[in-house]
Design a protein around this nucleic acid. Structure first.
Lengths: 157, 157
DNA sequence: TTTGTTATTGGAAACCATTTCCATTATAAG
DNA sequence: CTTATAATGGAAATGGTTTCCAATAACAAA
């Protein structure tokens, strides 16, 4: 995993240019924000983070770039049910930071968990294989979310 | 599972009234459509199905009713990434028809599968328990979806 | 470096699923 | 039947996301 620490050209340049996309200021800024942040950001969140340093990058560009990144598999687009999409940097299903989500249906808080990932991923791998074969479906990704009430909200009542 | 087959008052009346909701023509019509259909329907799909027989039921009512049903846990609200929500009748995570989804990222086709549900649900139950304890989170539901290319779309290229 | 091709951009306007408003109507308890 | 109020529908508002298009910038070639 070359050059993750800021030395030399960012590791994503190759992947990006290799697909015929141009590497622009805006795209780099967006990638940086995503790579740095631990949270799931909305398009507007990203806009806000970028704006101070790059006041001339518009929301439209953010959306367009997120689309590209998403189609390249570099970013996951998530829906937590509050009407705006969230984006998170993809580390790959086997990456160190792979996690699933716990979504509070009351306050929309999202907890990332990694605790049971290993067992889950193991089972999912088998499931994927079976499904791929049976439905001739080429699986590239999965989404697992649990819904319920977080500590605060289940206490409220 | 009483009266699923059209004899006597629909089985859901109790649950409905018990929560202080009134049982109206519109709501019954919507419930009927949902209970009858095997597919995931959008609000507009439902509207279209209901309109011939109940031309005076508006889209607004559909949305409102789906919200209620959703909060009662009688209906799941799903997002397949095409910008409109889909709804499906909930049979409960242990119900006979419980299934997960295979979503084609190219044509948005959705395949329901039940093949590996048993193993999955078993593991999920354990995971839920662990998560509930660790995060003091009251889990009521889960969402599992696989993304990829369906037979047609992976052939296309 | 200069040039030419063309992907990318920003901003305003369009889009469109979903919500909100509010006066009217219908449910169901008494 | 009467009454309190939940529910309704249609129009208008909302708000996240896309589309449009002329202007700009990336980068390959010379």
């Amino acid at each position: 995993m070359p050059n993750r620490e800021g030395l030399g050209p960012p590791w994503w340049q190759g992947k990006f240019r290799g697909c015929g996309y141009r590497l622009t200021i805006g795209r780099e800024a967006i990638l940086e924000v995503l790579a740095k942040s631990e949270r799931h950001l909305s398009a507007e969140d990203i806009y806000m983070k970028i704006h101070p340093r790059h006041p001339n990058i518009g929301l439209t560009t953010i959306y367009r770039t997120l689309d590209v990144l998403s189609s390249l598999g570099m970013v996951y687009k998530l829906d937590f049910g509050d009407g705006r999409a969230r984006y998170e940097f993809a580390e790959g299903p086997k990456g160190a930071h792979h996690h699933h989500h716990l979504v509070c249906t009351d306050c929309n808080r999202v907890i990332d968990y990694t605790d049971f990932i290993d067992e889950e991923v193991e089972l999912l791998k088998q499931t994927e294989e079976g499904l791929s074969k049976k439905y001739n479906f080429k699986i590239t990704n999965h989404l697992i979310q649990f819904y319920g009430l977080c500590e605060k909200c289940s206490g409220k009542k």
